[in-house]
């Protein structure tokens, strides 16, 4: 292993991770301090089966209940894409830890294959998403350069993660090096891009669910 690859797998990742963590902490602090949560003075309304707590849980669980929202219920293919894409992100991040700190795991061809299938599928979804973003007039109209770049970045990163999964230098180091450089860039870039949505997701769904539960809307009734 070259010094450059070693540096990329270890020191660079550690710097990038620390940076990301610092920015995340700063952002969450800013979010919680700068913006005050509204208080609810009114008595709870709606059905007694709906409460604040139930509303929050329902709201958080929504992501795993594609039948609960018309938007996901009516687009099963989009929902599958969503699941695959996010599994791919998780796997590609996990891989960036496995290679430097638990490479022996990748001695198993099955594990390598599992990483490659999940991340490869996510890469394919990335391509589909990019095509959709460019070709669908609605999505194009709402897209910013950050939206295009984020999808492209992740798709390319997935691609190199697939190549890096066997952790083999038989064909050279360039694919591993590119994967780790992209991972570091990804970690540094994420807090400033829309990819950081997962940081706010628990909050938005928490407040929405809380209010909806308190007012008798969540969990949705009847139907």
């Amino acid at each position: 292993m070259s010094n450059l690859l070693h540096f990329s797998e270890h020191t660079l990742q550690e710097i990038a991770l620390t940076f990301m963590a610092l920015v995340y902490v700063t952002r969450i602090t800013w979010f919680l301090r700068r913006f005050k949560a509204g208080t609810e003075r009114q008595a709870p309304s709606g059905s007694p089966q709906t409460t604040k707590a139930k509303g929050v849980l329902y709201s958080w669980a929504n992501v795993a209940m594609p039948w609960a929202m018309e938007s996901t219920r009516s687009r099963p293919f989009m929902y599958v894409q969503f699941v695959v894409f996010h599994l791919g992100v998780t796997a590609a991040i996990a891989l960036s830890f496995v290679i430097p700190y638990g490479a022996e795991l990748l001695d198993s061809q099955l594990v390598v294959l599992l990483f490659q299938v999940i991340i490869g599928a996510a890469c394919a979804v990335g391509v589909v998403r990019m095509i959709r973003r460019v070709s669908n007039p609605y999505i194009r109209a709402i897209s910013s350069p950050d939206d295009y770049f984020s999808v492209a970045l992740l798709t390319v990163w997935f691609f190199f993660a697939v190549l890096a999964a066997p952790n083999s230098t038989a064909m050279g180091e360039w694919h591993l090096l590119t994967y780790f450089l992209l991972t570091a860039f990804f970690l540094v870039y994420v807090p400033f891009s829309k990819i950081s949505h997962y940081l706010y997701y628990p909050f938005t769904r928490y407040y929405f669910g809380k209010s909806m539960g308190y007012r008798g809307v969540y969990p949705l009734r009847g139907g």
Partner: peptide, 26 residues
């Protein structure tokens, strides 16, 4: 005017487009 709920809604949109055809205007 920015409450935490509103600020969260401002930041969290990923432009996925899932909500688009829930609107009767669309």
């Amino acid at each position: 005017k920015l409450s935490r709920q509103i600020a969260g809604s401002m930041i969290a949109c990923v432009h996925c487009g899932m909500c688009i055809d829930s609107c009767h205007y669309v």
